[in-house]
């Protein structure tokens, strides 16, 4: 279809721009783009739950934050963690936490699901806030970025902002492609069927619990991946990275961009961070402007900012 081709061409152009960015943009913009891509991964992982499985989670930062904390916890003091072991540790740790929380949470529906995910995430928050683990309420600095040395060779240095940018770009593209594939898979169709009509999925013979739990674990693992890079870029971790404020922000990104499309999550994360900067430059009461923007989008753009492009492309899954 022609509209499909337009979207593909646009995607390739965007990718080329992203690859070229560090060659013409300054440090500030490269770091901003890195942060946007990290948040886009985080938002896509939440969109899998909210937009595709119909599970509105208000505790998604728990997995992002755990991924972030595992960067710090994997490193011996004043030394670097090993990238190749700490990254799987962060992703796997977040997946395990998601399995434990999801086991209880996905048994509930609607408002109860929101409350249960929020409650679990706050429990995780207070574990890190109220104990001495990784600096308690102050958090802890990551003194040295994870070391990517493998068999004597170091393919990239995460302390270098350009190289970090490219590693994050690879992760961002990989997560996007992975989710595209998963959403078209046998599993992906079941998850979308559950959002539309869970009762009918059950009567067709699907044990919906199993599929919702799998989606919850996958979303948690990818949020952990985002958290890992979030911590690496920020150079520190603190309990706010697990808090419900961040869970709310990422949910707003998904709604702002348009639920149920991956591009929507990416657009939402980008718009949220850029608007935040814009409003912060205008007034210290920027949260009022941000809140107002969210209200306007919710009222007048039911398919989010990315929905504006719908008439151009016709299709809605992408």
């Amino acid at each position: 279809m022609r509209s499909d081709r337009t979207a593909t061409v646009l995607g390739i152009v965007l990718l080329l721009v992203l690859v070229a960015l560090p060659f013409f943009a300054g440090k500030y913009y490269v770091q901003l783009a890195t942060k946007i891509m990290i948040m886009a991964v985080f938002a896509m992982s939440l969109d899998l739950l909210v937009g595709y499985a119909g599970l509105v989670s208000l505790g998604h930062a728990a997995f992002y934050g755990l991924g972030a904390y595992l960067v710090a916890l994997a490193a011996p003091q004043y030394q670097a963690a090993n990238f190749w072991t700490s990254l799987p540790l962060a992703v796997g740790g977040a997946a395990l936490l998601a399995a434990a929380i999801g086991f209880f949470a996905v048994r509930t529906q609607g408002i109860y699901f929101i409350m249960v995910t929020l409650a679990f995430a706050q429990m995780v928050y207070f574990v890190f806030h109220d104990t001495k683990i990784a600096g308690g309420s102050d958090g802890i600095f990551i003194d040295v970025r994870p070391d990517a040395k493998i068999a004597g060779w170091t393919p990239f240095d995460l302390a270098d902002f350009v190289q970090l940018y490219f590693v994050v770009l690879v992760a961002f593209v990989a997560v996007y492609v992975l989710l595209r594939v998963v959403l078209r898979s046998l599993f992906g169709r079941v998850v979308q069927g559950i959002r539309v009509n869970e009762h009918r999925m059950k009567s067709l013979g699907y044990s919906t619990f199993r599929y919702k739990l799998a989606a919850f674990i996958l979303a948690g693992a990818l949020a952990g991946l985002a958290g890992y890079f979030g911590a690496v870029q920020y150079g520190a971790v603190n309990p706010e990275m697990l808090g419900w404020h961040l869970s709310g922000s990422v949910l707003m990104m998904v709604i702002l961009g348009g639920m149920g499309t991956l591009t929507g999550a990416v657009v939402g994360a980008t718009a949220f961070l850029l608007l935040e900067l814009l409003f912060q430059s205008l007034t210290e009461h920027w949260q009022l402007l941000m809140g107002g923007t969210i209200v306007l989008v919710a009222l007048f753009l039911p398919h989010g900012i990315a929905g504006l492009a719908r008439p151009l492309f016709g299709r809605k899954d992408g």
Binding site: V181, S185, F187, R189, V190, V196, M201, L218
Partner: peptide, 29 residues
Amino acid sequence: VFLPFTVFENARLAAQSRLPSSLRFFRPA
């Protein structure tokens, strides 16, 4: 039924339910 889905997808989802498991993340539906 699944109102937003096509007729084919409604029937296909029903037929898919007879697979031993749909926890297959890479196989295109």
